[in-house]
Computed example of a mutant assay.
Amino acid sequence: MAHLTVTLSEQDKALLHSIATETRRTDEDLAAAALSSYVHWQAEYLRRVKAGLEAARQGQVVTDDELDALFDRLDREEGLTP
């Protein structure tokens, strides 16, 4: 296991401690879980952005009209529009 030192605002530190206490975890355990969740989410986000850019480079795009039609259909299926 690696160690990392971070600087938090007093407000964030207090909030972290409050959540850790309420969930019966240590501050360190909660911070590690939060950081792990964030970096995995960020890595997936970047992977999807890169995939989208590559698809656009290959001409795999949707026109505004096609996108509007898709949203209209989804809204109708969900009962959001008549």
Rank of each mutant, 00 (worst) to 15 (best):
Q42E: 10
V49N: 01
T81F: 08
I19F: 15
G79M: 08
T21K: 15
F71Y: 03
M1N: 07
A14P: 09
A33C: 07
D68R: 15
E54V: 11
A32L: 06
A33K: 15
M1K: 02
T81Q: 07
D64K: 08
E10R: 09
E10Y: 04
D64A: 10
A31C: 13
L74E: 15
R25G: 01
V61D: 03
R48V: 02
A51V: 00
L53Q: 10
A55H: 04
E78K: 15
T81C: 10
D64L: 09
E77H: 06
I19P: 03
L16R: 06
T7C: 02
L74Q: 12
W41S: 14
A34Q: 11
T81G: 09
L74S: 05
Y38Q: 10
L74N: 04
D12H: 13
L35K: 02
I19N: 09
D27Q: 07
T23Y: 03
A14R: 15
Q60P: 00
V6M: 05
T81E: 14
V6S: 07
D75H: 11
Y45I: 05
R48L: 09
I19Y: 14
Q58Y: 00
R25H: 08
W41D: 13
D29M: 12
T81H: 06
D64P: 04
E44W: 06
D65K: 09
Y45K: 13
